[in-house]
Amino acid sequence: MKLSQLEPGESGVIKEFTDLEMSVKLMEMGCLPGESVKVQRFAPLGDPIAITVSGYQLSLRKREASTIILH
């Protein structure tokens, strides 16, 4: 299951990443394997999305969210 497949309000736990370079950027922002993430909302035009991770809100595009695999 990818993070990009979640609907607003749904949550999951990060398992791994499919893209090494993107994973470095995501991990620096607190998206680490084992962290739980919750999709808060989609932008008005459906992309990007806003998620809650380690206590704060992060926005990222669906394409980036699709590199995050959930448990």
Binding site: Y56, Q57, L58, E64
Partner: peptide
Amino acid sequence: GYFIMELPV
């Protein structure tokens, strides 16, 4: 390009 950005409180 990519877009990873904090949404501050």
